[in-house]
Design a protein around this nucleic acid. Structure first.
Lengths: 264, 264
DNA sequence: CATACAATATTATTTACGAAAAATGGTATA
DNA sequence: TATACCATTTTTCGTAAATAATATTGTATG
């Protein structure tokens, strides 16, 4: 068993959303391209025009599409895409090569999370800091690489973002979650790293509790740098395996929990 | 004439989206609340059930709502809202008091933009840096507080985000835009500030061109701190005026869902 | 007491038709 | 020739109504 991304039963319009999103994010459909008319596209995909329209609305809400009467539905410029949208991040993680994806995400985390830790130390409410502490204790008391441990890890980082007392930062929990999910999936193949994980998390917690802003920030930077190193090792070693895994994941229909034993 | 936010003719489903979004973001509808059934809600708002459903899909895509058969459509927890979504930011800017809104946004910019400037100095492509330079020159050659100047200012910051060569950072242009729009609307009342704006922008550009990462970051920090001071002055002086302005902005009711003017 | 099953309420989905918006091309007029 | 206007046509937008799927809740049965 392992933490899972959304992949199970989906509504019809969600299936269309996913199908189109993947086509756009993978570059099959490119910015400026105009989709077939609602009538053609929906019959092509074998769904009702209404369901198709609902899918278009969802993707427009995420900045991927734009519809205008008489001209059609067009793929918007990349700069208009809401890349931080949780679903878009999730789709990208399935499409892009792990290393490129991980690079961008880690770079982003290295900006956001140390700053959040700093703010948490400055103005995090006692309750929020208590939530961080609770997540840490759960982390320390659960088996490494277990689902409970993963969830506590995520809670830890999410709680720090929330303790920053800034709504914009708080809403970035999903960015962390997506990266952690990717990390988890990759390092589940090759466990053993992350020995220093608990003390590094502990250091962050301690400095936030101390209300030492700069040290809290630095502790988070250290923690992330370590996590990145661990992940880089996995990527180095498993580069070909993971590539195979990506390719051998064409349809999630099988819903095989964890054990992808011999895809053939 | 001034740069305008989206407020003109809207499709019916967009009007419903806006109406519901405002209710949610303003706290009239609270997390956990269940909306009326599609039938009731749509007849209540005097739109078809299809149009209402499209609106629900849009808000679900932004993390505000969640629909399940038999149970209804529920407002999701705040932590699930995509606060960085451009539209959500725009709606919030209309609802929240300027000072609170500006606080959060500036805090966020002070984290993101110096880091982006640093990355731009490190790995920004010559073309991207040229775009920054072009925006700067336009800024320097247009009248302060003109629409052209505003747009060049926005382009400047957006180009730096893009020059960071990180898709996640690039997609944050809208955060900057929303804050600049708010700033523009506020300081349009009381022009005269921002004399040092051009040289401060110039310093950022120069350090990026020098490929001096730390100085580029610091120059951006200085620029933002200055902009924040200017804006704080405006907020201090115009606190009551702006409040009045906010209240005197109910003209959107004319285009409200179903156009039910004088409900009696 | 628990388990299975049936009733029910709500969203999900399809189908069909008509309205509105906007790009295009043609036509008249200066 | 060029410009303004107008009709045409294509496409999305919006409404309506009927049926399906699904999850909750109540009810009966072992």
């Amino acid at each position: 068993m392992r933490p899972r991304r959304q992949t199970g039963r989906m509504n019809i319009h969600q299936q269309v959303v996913r199908e189109l999103a993947v086509r756009i994010l993978s570059g099959v459909l490119r910015p400026g391209d105009i989709l077939p008319t609602e009538d053609n596209a929906s019959t092509e995909m074998d769904v009702s025009r209404t369901a198709y329209r609902e899918a278009i609305k969802v993707l427009s809400a995420k900045g991927l599409l734009e519809s205008r009467a008489k001209v059609g539905t067009r793929v918007r410029q990349k700069s208009e895409w809401n890349m931080l949208d949780p679903e878009i991040l999730g789709w990208k993680s399935e499409i892009e090569t792990p290393s490129k994806f991980v690079d961008d995400l880690f770079e982003f985390r290295m900006i956001i999370e140390p700053a959040a830790a700093r703010l948490a130390a400055r103005k995090g409410s006692p309750e929020k800091i208590d939530k961080i502490r609770h997540a840490f204790e759960t982390m320390a008391n659960t088996e490494m690489s277990s689902v409970e441990n993963f969830e506590a890890d995520f809670d830890f980082h999410k709680s720090i973002l929330e303790a920053s007392e800034n709504e914009l930062l708080s809403s970035l929990g999903h960015v962390v979650e997506t990266l952690l999910l990717t990390s988890f999936e990759l390092s589940a193949l090759r466990p053993g790293a992350r020995e220093q994980s608990v003390p590094l998390h502990g250091a962050v917690l301690a400095q936030i509790q101390n209300r030492d802003q700069d040290k809290a920030r630095d502790a988070m930077t250290t923690l992330l740098a370590s996590a990145r190193t661990d992940l880089d090792d996995v990527l180095q070693n498993d580069i070909h395996e993971t590539t195979i895994l990506k390719k051998a994941d064409p349809d999630d229909t099988s819903t095989r929990a964890g054990g992808n034993r011999s895809p053939n």
